[in-house]
């Protein structure tokens, strides 16, 4: 199945690979494994992602902050969820973008170096009981109206730029602007 790999900031030497799953049955289990650290990946609600670029920007900020020793949360994976949120409250951010036990559609993000994708992905992907589908189907899953509400994007803004551009611009200024 089609996945998506993007090179993150050159200076970090990191990459992210993203997978989309639908009809996931064991979210509760996945969540426990994530919290215990058994799964080394980032898992989020697919409905809140308008475009993969949104996740890529959040992940890029996370790896850059990691390089400069400036992570706000404890791991790079929680940092991605925190970066996606406009809130400065860590718990709220993780609850909002991370999975809860009811979640069916999820995006899995794996951070890796230039070579070892498959090995890193294998364990994480094996733990997910659901249907892995093409990344292109994300647009069927995204709940655009909820995304607009969460990121406080109004119509005048959408006249001059795409929703994903509004979202990433706001994400990037959350540390020093209030929304």
């Amino acid at each position: 199945m089609e996945s998506c790999t993007v090179q993150l900031d050159e200076d970090t030497g990191k990459f992210i690979t993203l997978y989309l799953f639908i009809n996931v049955e064991n979210t509760e289990e996945i969540r426990k494994k994530l919290i215990s650290g058994e799964l080394q990946c980032c898992v989020m609600k697919a409905g809140l992602v308008v475009d993969l670029f949104q996740v890529i920007v959040a992940a890029n900020k996370a790896v850059v902050n990691e390089k400069f020793g400036k992570l706000t949360t404890r791991t790079i994976f929680t940092e991605i969820l925190f970066n996606m949120s406009l809130s400065k409250n860590i718990t709220q951010s993780l609850v909002k973008f991370g999975i809860d036990d009811k979640e069916k559609n999820i995006i899995v993000g794996i951070i890796h170096g230039s070579d070892n994708t498959e090995a890193m992905a294998k364990d994480s992907l094996a733990a997910i009981k659901g249907e892995r589908v093409s990344i292109g189907r994300l647009k069927e899953i995204t709940d655009t109206s909820v995304v607009k509400k969460i990121y406080k994007v109004d119509e005048s803004e959408l006249k001059v730029s795409s929703l994903v551009d509004c979202v990433v611009s706001k994400m990037n200024t959350k540390d020093f602007a209030s929304y």
């Binding site: 920007v57 890029n60 001059v160 990433v168 200024t173 020093f176």
Partner: peptide, 27 residues
């Protein structure tokens, strides 16, 4: 850097076209 990034986002919200921000890096 902060001021510039903030203004770009505010202008966007005001309905003026500005470039999207990919990363703001103080380091």
């Amino acid at each position: 850097t902060k001021g510039e990034a903030r203004a770009i986002v505010r202008a966007k919200a005001a309905g003026v076209k500005t470039p999207a921000l990919f990363l703001v890096d103080f380091d």
